[in-house]
Design a protein around this nucleic acid. Structure first.
Lengths: 147, 147
DNA sequence: TCCTTTATTAAGAATTATTCTTATTAAGTA
DNA sequence: TACTTAATAAGAATAATTCTTAATAAAGGA
């Protein structure tokens, strides 16, 4: 196993640990919703998470998905990916990477930077507040939409 | 006047030119909606644009604002700023700059890079499609929300 | 200037995405 | 095993955006 690449089970273990640290309960729903985002490379939206978790937990509600995605985000276990559409999408990949976002269809593609590439924080961004994360968005028209 | 800094009237002139190029009509609504985004530093959302344009054009409809913002975006006259909230915000500032986005309140602050700072396009982002724009998002908690 | 064509608009209904309310359930603890 | 309360399900409510249709007005030609 390489650094930064965790198995799903490892990721779920760190979720459980984080819940304990924060005094939050380890519920089936929380675990399964996290599993769904953490095991996907598709930056799923709330609806997709709902559909997929529903196969395992048929009684899951839409509200639980939204509430849990928001709490996982607060816990820093998942991250919101901007999609330009009025629909939030999520990512649990902690490796530093950027996103190509298609301005036509909203699809989000991971850009794992080649060796040596790094985005640096602009010095004068620090005056606005406490920085949590930086994220480079490359916007364009994806190959699929060009045809 | 410095390069890249245009007066509002100049910006509206370029809108009219762009409409002509594209065979689109120069309507009062289109001009006033563009004026609103182009003269604001606040990255206004559709509702704010609607409220402000309404003072000059009392009959403007919400739909026209949405439709026109989308068409101005297609024309490359304005840009969508991601806000993490399910609410689009817009920017007409063509100078290269980045955004600090508050993860609590969604506020968007302009980061005009200091001399010498530049974000470069990751080489391997090109394989996903045609690149139109790159945009560095710095996410954090703004000073207002820290108190 | 007036007419014609058709892109654009206003109005409001419809849809989509998200959040809220309330009663119920179950995780963690004693 | 029982208790406490965080978390959930269900579905109503709200917020953001888009669609439908008839009316309007911009641009070009007579």
């Amino acid at each position: 196993m390489t650094a930064n690449v965790q198995s799903i089970d490892d990721k779920i273990e760190s979720l459980k640990k984080r819940c304990q640290e924060l005094g939050m309960r380890v519920t089936t729903q929380r675990v399964e919703i996290f599993r769904e985002v953490a095991s996907s490379c598709e930056h799923p939206d709330a609806e997709t998470v709902y559909e997929n978790v529903k196969e395992r937990l048929p009684n899951i509600s839409f509200d639980t998905v939204y509430r849990t995605l928001a709490s996982l985000e607060d816990m820093d276990m998942i991250f919101r990916v901007d999609s330009l559409l009025p629909k939030a999408r999520f990512d649990a990949d902690r490796r530093p990477h950027n996103h190509f976002i298609c301005i036509k269809c909203g699809e989000v593609y991971d850009i794992f930077p080649e060796d040596g590439y790094e985005v640096t924080i602009p010095e004068n961004s620090k005056k606005f507040g406490e920085i949590k994360d930086i994220n480079l968005q490359v916007r364009g028209i994806c190959n699929k939409c060009r045809h």
